[in-house]
Amino acid sequence: MINRGSTLPPVGVEHLVVDRDDEAALTAALGTRTFDVVVDQVCYTPVQAAIAARVFAGRTRRYVMTSTIEVYDPATAVLPTVPPGTPVPEESVDPTGWQVAMDLPWHDDAYLEAHYAEGKRQAEAVFVHAGGFAFAAVRSAHVLGGGAQEFTGRLAHYAGLIARSEEITVHETALPTVFIHYEELADLLVWATAADFTGPVNACSDGLLDVYDLAEIVATPIGREAVYRTVPAGEKASPFSFDRHYAMSNTRAKALGFSFSRTTDWLPGAVAEALAALSAAPTD
């Protein structure tokens, strides 16, 4: 496991502490180590991808990068038109033809946050052209589950709003998106390490949900109805309320042999975990 020391590895796992942005330090930390597969969970820019591609060339046969559904967001890039309601396939964003700009201010945190999707698109493009190992990009849907450890905290956010009868802001026409449970994403990443496909693959559970579907599932165990407020076009709404379409298709992953669950099968359990975490949280 390689990181800057912010997260400790499981017992028995070797831990290298190094900043991935420091190419010389990363090379020195790795020494003569080689790997069967590298799984990169935190590559956000083409600059980081280029460093990793140089450092790991010849050290691994396969490199799997965790990417994101956000690469398909039509608000952040000009993409091929997909018929409304049609889940977006991988070829809608082809990293082999995506332009890379290394001279953009990728080291600026504010710039990176505002250009998260473009950073992921360009990182994929760098790896695709780098050579030195087989490369696959796992484009993850919105990840949910884990209770207090859910890194976005969005289920808890919705649960809190509904429990307090506070408004959920939504678009006039809220379009559906796709989700994946964190354990299913972990399973898919493990599967991807042993597979032999290359290029991008979408990772999402079966079934599209819009913000109303999600809120209803969250509201059911609380015993209250969600309260909505519609925002004008262009105004920011609650998480998972989208006024643009980029729900993904998981057809390629299925054809390659991965079986997905249905979102509605695991989401109630994830909601229960979020509610339990809220109940256990200290109050002022």
Rank of each mutant, 00 (worst) to 15 (best):
I2P: 02
G5R: 10
G5P: 08
T7D: 10
P9R: 11
V13A: 13
L16P: 03
V17E: 15
E23T: 02
E23Q: 14
E23L: 05
A24G: 14
A28G: 06
L30C: 08
L30N: 09
T34H: 07
V37Q: 10
V38F: 04
Q41S: 14
V42K: 12
P46G: 07
V47E: 12
V47F: 02
Q48R: 07
A52P: 00
V55I: 07
T60H: 09
R62H: 07
T66W: 04
I69E: 13
Y72C: 09
P74K: 06
T76W: 12
P80Q: 06
T81I: 14
V82G: 06
P83K: 11
P83C: 07
T86W: 12
E91R: 14
E91I: 08
E91Q: 13
D94W: 04
G97H: 13
W98A: 04
Q99K: 15
P105N: 09
H107E: 15
Y111P: 01
Y111V: 00
Y111C: 06
Y116N: 08
A117Q: 07
A125E: 04
V126T: 05
V128R: 10
F135D: 00
A137N: 08
A137I: 09
V138G: 09
R139G: 01
S140C: 14
V143W: 01
L144I: 12
G146Q: 08
G147M: 10
A148S: 13
E150G: 08
F151W: 12
T152F: 02
L155H: 10
A156R: 15
A156Y: 06
L161W: 01
S165Q: 15
E166L: 13
E167N: 12
I180Y: 14
I180C: 08
Y182D: 11
E183A: 15
L185G: 04
A186S: 11
D187Y: 07
L188C: 12
W191F: 15
W191E: 05
A192W: 10
A195Q: 11
G199Q: 00
S205Q: 10
L209Q: 02
V211I: 13
V218Y: 03
P221R: 05
E225D: 13
A226M: 06
V227S: 09
Y228D: 06
Y228Q: 04
R229D: 06
R229Q: 12
K236Y: 11
P239I: 06
F240G: 04
F240T: 01
D243I: 00
D243K: 11
H245R: 13
S249C: 01
N250A: 13
T251L: 15
A255Q: 14
L256G: 12
F258G: 02
T263P: 07
W266R: 06
L267I: 04
G269L: 08
V271M: 08
A274N: 05
L278F: 09
